[in-house]
Amino acid sequence: MSKPIPDKAEVALEYPDKFYVGTFAHSSRFDAHLDPTGLALTLERPGPEDVRKSIHMHLNWGLLAAIIDEIATNIAAIPKDDVVHREQLHESVAALHEALKAP
């Protein structure tokens, strides 16, 4: 079941002869779920055909773990006074940590 995007996502896809960029904001929706091999993520922007768009990504477990490691290594890039975003990340990571401890 998709949920409203609480903030914003920007996606860029670059090919040798083409470049696509899209923004997904509050009017967009997302779905993230786990399957046997990793994380499936979908971002959808509803609307008429000329503005409607979606992206679908799948990250296998190893890549997902490497991304989380990279985030941890670079977390200092979030300013110390950006309490709201730091707290959002802290709560989400704590929930993930607790979920991983469950049998």
Rank of each mutant, 00 (worst) to 15 (best):
M1C: 09
S2Q: 13
K3D: 02
P4L: 04
P4E: 03
P4R: 06
D7G: 01
K8N: 02
V11E: 04
L13P: 00
E14P: 07
E14M: 13
Y15D: 06
Y15T: 08
P16H: 14
D17F: 03
F19G: 00
Y20Q: 08
V21R: 15
V21D: 14
T23K: 07
T23E: 08
F24D: 05
A25T: 12
S27V: 11
S28P: 14
R29A: 06
R29C: 04
R29S: 05
D31L: 09
A32H: 01
L34G: 04
L34E: 06
T37R: 04
L39M: 03
A40S: 10
A40V: 09
L41E: 04
L43R: 02
L43I: 15
E44D: 08
E44F: 00
E44I: 09
R45T: 11
P46H: 06
G47E: 01
G47C: 08
P48W: 08
E49D: 02
E49H: 01
D50V: 07
D50R: 08
V51I: 13
V51R: 11
R52C: 12
R52T: 14
K53N: 04
S54Q: 14
S54Y: 02
S54D: 05
I55H: 03
I55D: 01
H56Y: 12
M57K: 04
M57P: 00
H58Q: 08
H58A: 05
W61D: 15
W61L: 15
L63W: 03
A65E: 10
A65V: 15
I68M: 11
A72M: 13
A72D: 10
T73L: 11
T73R: 11
N74S: 13
A76H: 03
A76Y: 04
I78V: 09
P79E: 08
K80C: 03
D81R: 15
V84R: 06
V84I: 13
V84K: 03
H85K: 11
H85V: 15
E87A: 14
E87T: 15
E87K: 11
E87F: 09
L89G: 01
L89P: 03
H90S: 14
H90C: 14
H90I: 12
E91Q: 09
E91D: 10
S92Y: 04
V93L: 15
A95Y: 01
A95N: 09
L96T: 00
L96Q: 02
L96I: 06
H97P: 00
H97R: 06
E98Q: 12
E98K: 15
E98P: 02
E98I: 12
A99K: 07
K101F: 05
A102H: 01
P103N: 10
